[in-house]
Design a binder for these strands. Structure first.
Lengths: 150, 150
DNA sequence: TTGCCTGCAAAACATTTGCATGGTA
DNA sequence: TACCATGCAAATGTTTTGCAGGCAA
């Protein structure tokens, strides 16, 4: 059977949810494809598009990211820096990818983990709470910043 | 030896950090003492004080909570609802207390856990990242909301 | 063609800052 | 008394909303 590219999947998902694939939506998605390891804010996306000489309204980006999050294409993250950030939602590994945030240089490192699964299972049982998503962030000092650490 | 009340500890901590215990700071702390299980926003504190006929400026609350967080009396939390929230920082169990956030009714349940310690240890070793704090949030549906869940 | 999309301008919020006044230690 | 703390007003920065015109299907 033929492989489906992520873009094809997204196209289908939009159609399934009755959203049009407009020029603006396409270029926003393109930006995320071109910056796979980053956590982009609305402003980031806006500037990256300006750099590509793409004309788009800030408001449209707000609305687009919001919509893409609703239909589970993007994932919303908040590092406590006053703006909302987004990243592609990996279809398989939604639950295995967390962030290490350095309090000095601000670097964000990702790490994968499976330990949390046991914790989730226990929460569902003990608290009878049906988990659909989670957010795990560790704050501290990265390797490079540990010498001059406060 | 004599037991020390939390308020005494706080008084000492303020003194140690060269902060004055003003009327405003006292009443803000009082509000947190009177609402031990809650996660109060600046606005929450403001309204609770109004209810008690205490006159205080919003700005002062912003500054007070900020200061109390800096000296580790309060803990800052963010449930993604657009405002920063605070809770008392339990001296002993900083690292064993997380939140379950219901996506339907918004209820926030707390739970304790020790599993994360193993994860932290492994992160420190594998990534050479020195953890000072972490934030763990689980989103989903609470017991009561699981029937009408979307 | 039609109804969703877009983008501007303005509004809405949460939070921060400047500055003169007030109060604690 | 000496500073730190307060509170008002204004500024800031992000996000939302109203509305007229545009565009994908």
């Amino acid at each position: 059977m033929a492989e489906m590219s992520r873009m094809d999947e997204i196209r289908d998902k939009l159609k399934a949810e009755n959203y049009k694939l407009t020029r603006q939506r396409a270029v926003v998605l393109e930006v995320f494809e071109e910056h796979p390891e980053e956590h982009l804010s609305v402003e980031d996306v806006y500037k990256l598009l300006l750099n590509k000489n793409v004309d788009i309204g800030l408001t449209t980006i707000y609305r687009t990211l919001d919509m893409l999050e609703k239909i589970a294409i993007l994932h919303k993250i908040d590092f406590g820096d006053g703006r909302t950030r987004y990243e592609f939602r990996q279809l398989q590994e939604i639950h295995h990818h967390h962030h290490l945030i350095c309090g000095k240089c601000g670097a964000v490192t990702e790490f994968k983990d499976t330990l949390l699964e046991a914790l989730e299972k226990s929460i569902q049982e003990v608290h009878n709470f049906k988990i659909t998503d989670h957010q795990v962030k560790f704050f501290g000092y990265c390797r490079e910043c540990q010498d001059g650490e406060k």
